[in-house]
Amino acid sequence: MSAREEILERIRTALKDAPEVPVIPRGYRASSQLDEAELIELLVDRLIDYKARVCIVDTEDVPMKIAELLAEAGSYVVPAGLDADWLTGLELQQDSRRRLDSMTAPLSVAELDGIDAVVTGSAVAVAETGTIILDGSPNQGRRAITLVPDHHICVVEVADIAGILPEALRRIDGTRPLTMVSGPSATSDIELERVEGVHGPRTLDVIIAR
């Protein structure tokens, strides 16, 4: 008997009393009923609590804000599908610091390691938990680009902010390569003292575009 057959047989035998399959009581909240201003306020509060840096700008000011946040970066990477408007009308348009990454023309890990920052969009955000979900869409790119550079600048559009997790997960295709980000990486492993910034990007800038 193969291990597969044997394990399944052991489990079937263990369940020979045929335990009842319960109905799942889903009495928990399915939505938050918050309006746009409340969603933004809650998300900002939670992000700041995680020591992420947050700003709220009008959509037309996103390029300016990105340029400002990138002022110190010697180099940065953007996914090939990043909203072109975000990089126009500025010195960024012909920026020699910029590297493009895509599924078809990916940068190597070593190349990414030499890059200071990354700019991406996002799929959906969860206000209540301060979580940003990346789903690998063309404006967010491969998982590696938001991981290896030390500074992540992430644009969240107001329409993409959900109140609570169940609302957010309903908007997501679970079979995409997903990363849920809640603040910069952190550890509390030494005497439970929280230290922000271990292996992931040590700085997380969130631009909320309305």
């Binding site: 990916p106 491969r142 998982r143 997903l178 990363t179």
Partner: peptide
Amino acid sequence: MNPYTSLWTGVTEGD
């Protein structure tokens, strides 16, 4: 929420 959660479904080509 914990800082990072990763989800993957089999192999994603190119990622």
